[in-house]
Nucleic acid binder design. Structure first.
Length: 485
RNA sequence: GGUGGGUUGGCCGAGAGGCGAGGCAACGGACUGCAAAUCCGUGUACACGGGUUCAAAUCCCGUACCCACCUCCA
């Protein structure tokens, strides 16, 4: 069984064949750190996090690079509006992004390069392009450098477009361009309107990088001239990825073997950036559901499917995920918990200690079929729930191990300490304290029940419930859990 | 205008020629003092119109509606 991935460039599902056996190099376009991350931003990160975990689980040594764009027009515009330096805005938003990603258990990449730290690499690449006749400094003295689209016959190959069908670029004064479709590799510093801190020295005078060049330069630096997979949101297909590929290949680099693009999360039928609304920012969403539930909501849909976001659907997903957690909790209550189920030491994938169900593996190998994979998790949970009635058995242990193994691949293991709300030492002490108090009440209730004094038994249960704690009677005795938030 | 994608049951969301993915909700049953949880069961869903085929949600043709990208949006 081999991994198959949908390649945007060829518009078909293809076998994944790495350039180097046993290794996978992945580059994902991260965010432009210009505002707080919302649900849509985070989807891309989760989707590619699942890709990474699956590759690792299948035994690949994964080098995973996800960049941040920390200088661009919007950052400059917004920072000016907010009356603070652009680098402060970018840094603040970068930290917000880190926090948001941590809250949904997205692993930190192998490395996270930023554009501003890689100007020399970009200058070098631009110089190469000029030398090869694929780029030229603007003739209007603006200090801009453009990629010469007409000089690269393959231009448009990624998105299946002809140059003549495209609308001309508007991000620079067209007077300096040979063709209106040429795009900026380097942007000359505009003294009158841009801060001095937003300019770096170059052979063409002070300026800053064009958008696309950073990814070409950084992918080349950290993954090599050829690498396996390049990912990002669908909107980046054109122009960003088309331009990246054109630049890199025109410079003589083979670049990415596979292109993967995640679809949108929309609200009211439109992309989130259009519908705005603070309620979709990650901290707001996390007031309603836990991070793990938000992640489950994202993972339960295929990465190439549009998802129409709604809080109702989010609540449903959260309810569905608790069913999985309930199974794990009940198994733990009879002695089959996470500690008894050793899997990989790093929790970053790698082969599990128990073979995952064939159907799960097949689903994941089929272009990361997470919806089908989640269905297998539910099937296993249902079987496990049946087994649970028989007490601790080898079959039950296997089911628990498989569920943990599958959840880990999806980044959804509730016992993973990476979850910020998984509880540190203080939480555990608090839980122990509450346990003592609740156990006392449960003993009283047990006495009442033994005496068939149902009124008193229910009164005690209601009293506990008033504190936000649910009591369930199980074959092995009453179990208390914190109620839903 | 060019390019890419979508329309599935009360809801969410898979699938891509034949056997009803899965979840949420609902209803019935089992279990329970009652609940809860769990298990079992219950649905003639594939935008519309044609066609191909023994067989179409799935392939072909056409129509409608929706969305995205076309130079700094995940």
């Amino acid at each position: 069984m081999t991994l198959r991935l949908y390649d945007t460039a060829t518009r078909e599902v293809r076998d994944f064949v790495p350039l180097e056996e046993g290794k996978a190099g992945v580059y994902v376009c991260g965010l432009t750190v210009q505002s707080e991350p919302h649900v849509g931003h985070v989807r891309s990160a989760v989707n590619f996090d699942v890709l990474r975990r699956w590759l690792a689980h299948q035994g690949y040594a994964v080098t995973f690079i996800r960049n941040v764009t920390d200088i661009d027009d919007k950052i400059l515009t917004k920072s000016e509006e907010q009356g603070r330096p652009w680098f402060n805005l970018a840094y603040d938003m970068h930290r917000e992004l880190d926090k948001a990603l941590a809250s949904i258990n997205v692993l930190p990449p192998t490395y996270e390069p930023g554009a501003t730290g890689h100007v020399p690499e970009m200058v070098e690449l631009i110089t190469t392009l000029i030398g090869r006749g694929h780029a030229y400094p603007a003739e209007d003295g603006s200090g801009d450098v453009y990629f010469d689209v007409r000089s690269w016959p393959a231009y448009g190959e990624l998105t299946n477009q002809g140059v003549d069908d495209m609308a001309p670029a508007e991000d620079a004064d067209p007077r300096g361009k040979r063709d209106p479709r040429d795009f900026a590799l380097w942007k000359g510093w505009k003294k009158e309107s841009e801060p001095e801190t937003a300019a770096w020295p170059s052979p063409w005078g002070p300026g800053r990088p064009g958008w696309h060049i950073e990814c070409s330069a950084m992918a080349g630096k950290y993954l090599g001239k050829a690498f396996d997979i390049h990912g990002g949101g669908v909107d980046l297909r054109f122009p960003h990825h088309e331009n990246e590929q054109a630049q890199s290949r025109a410079a003589g680099y083979p670049f990415a073997s596979y292109w993967m693009h995640n679809a949108w999360i929309t609200t009211a039928g439109e992309k989130m950036s259009k519908s705005l609304g603070n309620s979709l920012l990650i901290p707001e969403v996390l007031k309603r559901v836990r991070g793990i539930e938000l992640r489950f909501y994202i993972v339960a849909a295929h990465y190439r499917s549009h998802v129409e976001f709604s809080f109702e659907a989010l609540d449903e997903a959260a309810a569905g995920f608790r069913r999985i957690e309930n199974f794990l909790d009940r198994a733990a209550a009879i002695g089959i918990g996470r500690d008894e189920v050793p899997t990989t030491p790093s929790r970053v994938g790698g082969p599990a200690d128990v073979p995952l169900p064939d159907a799960f593996v097949a689903a994941m190998d089929d272009d990361l079929g997470t919806p089908a994979a989640v269905a297998v998790v539910y099937d296993t949970v249902r079987e496990g729930n049946k087994l649970l009635a028989g007490g601790p058995t080898a079959e039950l242990t296997t089911a628990v191990r498989q569920v943990f193994g599958m959840l880990e691949v999806l980044g959804l293991d509730p016992t993973d300490p990476a979850w910020p709300d998984a509880g540190g030492g203080a939480d555990i002490r608090l839980t122990d304290a509450v346990d003592v108090l609740v156990q006392g009440l449960l003993e009283e209730r047990a006495e009442a029940r033994a005496a068939k004094d149902w009124a008193r038994a229910d009164r005690i249960r209601d009293q506990i419930k008033a504190a936000g704690i649910e009591v369930e009677d199980t074959p092995s005795g009453p179990v208390w859990t914190l109620g839903e938030k």
